[in-house]
Design a protein around this nucleic acid. Structure first.
Lengths: 166, 166
DNA sequence: AGCTGATAATTGACAGAGTCCAGAATCTGT
DNA sequence: ACAGATTCTGGACTCTGTCAATTATCAGCT
């Protein structure tokens, strides 16, 4: 049942309580940040160093067991949906974030007209807009920012919605 | 001739030497960071505060006179190509970055299958791959990272190429 | 089970991007 | 030229992420 252990073994990395906890939490809370992840894992294991968080996330990303994303204006976020080439839909106002399936499925799902000789292996798509709640709250149109600050105090955290994780 | 002045006036913001310099430098060096921008502007005007850089960039972005982008693992970068809905092509190895035209042109150039009730006004596409130089340098395949660090010392800076700015 | 070398976690210091704040300077319309 | 609004300055601060040295833990072997 505990396929996480097998996954780690298969990828030739040691199985540790920290890594298992990180994998579990990332699966439960998609789009979590390293900092938030530390808090959650710490509450479960008692303690974990910040460096262990970053190290573990690093190897898990390396082994493609989790994926790191970083939408403009956000810190790095982690998710366990890998290999399905899904994309992200983000509200400019409240930063709520949804997963959206890729219509194509394969990677890369798009090709540029002129690839400048690149070997392109991923087309990452981020849809920006305004969520239903923020559309209702605010007068229509002008989905821009109100403040001068590039990203006003990181607008709390980017909420994530697991409805899209089914 | 100095259309930058007019642009600022039209958008109802004060015309200052700092803003003009920032607009000029961003136009000359697409994908520049706030820090690099500060250095260049400082060498031209003698001095400018970091806060003035961020304030001005904020206002200019607000007014849509420049655009802020932030590829995963990079700090914020600024470009003067606005309104043409172009996308970006980035080398995972050396971080070289190109502009690529959007095949569709209109905004948003893509629509998600399920928009969760969002009012979507932009589809931002980032193509990730390996540039010609790095393909030649390195053995083929495995375009991944070698280190555990998420982004090894920001791999110098993201180079930009103005060939695509014509 | 107990060793042992390799791997991983901890600790503390550090760097850089971006923000906040209060006071001084500058711009713009009248 | 004046006054009010806007902008700039300088310094302190937060937060994410990294580096390096030390200690602890894992996993294969006898």
């Amino acid at each position: 049942m505990n396929t996480a252990v097998e996954l780690l073994r298969e990828h030739g990395v040691q199985v540790t309580a920290q890594r298992l906890a990180i994998m579990r939490v990332v699966a439960e809370q998609p789009h979590i940040t390293a900092g938030e992840l530390g808090d959650v894992v710490r509450s479960q294991l008692g303690s974990i160093s910040r460096q262990a968080i970053y190290d573990s996330l690093g190897v898990l990303v390396d082994k493609k067991l989790i994926r790191r994303i970083q939408p403009a204006g956000s810190v790095g976020r982690y998710e366990s949906r890998v290999g399905d080439n899904h994309h992200h839909l983000i509200c400019r106002v409240c930063r709520m974030m949804f997963d959206v399936d890729c219509a194509v499925g394969e990677v890369p799902c798009l090709t540029a007209d002129d690839t400048h000789g690149f070997e392109v292996n991923e087309a990452e798509v981020t849809y920006w807009g305004r969520c239903p709640t923020c559309r209702a709250d605010d007068p229509p149109d002008d989905v821009g920012r109100r403040r001068s600050a590039v990203f006003p105090h990181e607008q709390a955290t980017i909420h994530n919605d697991s409805r899209s994780m089914t």
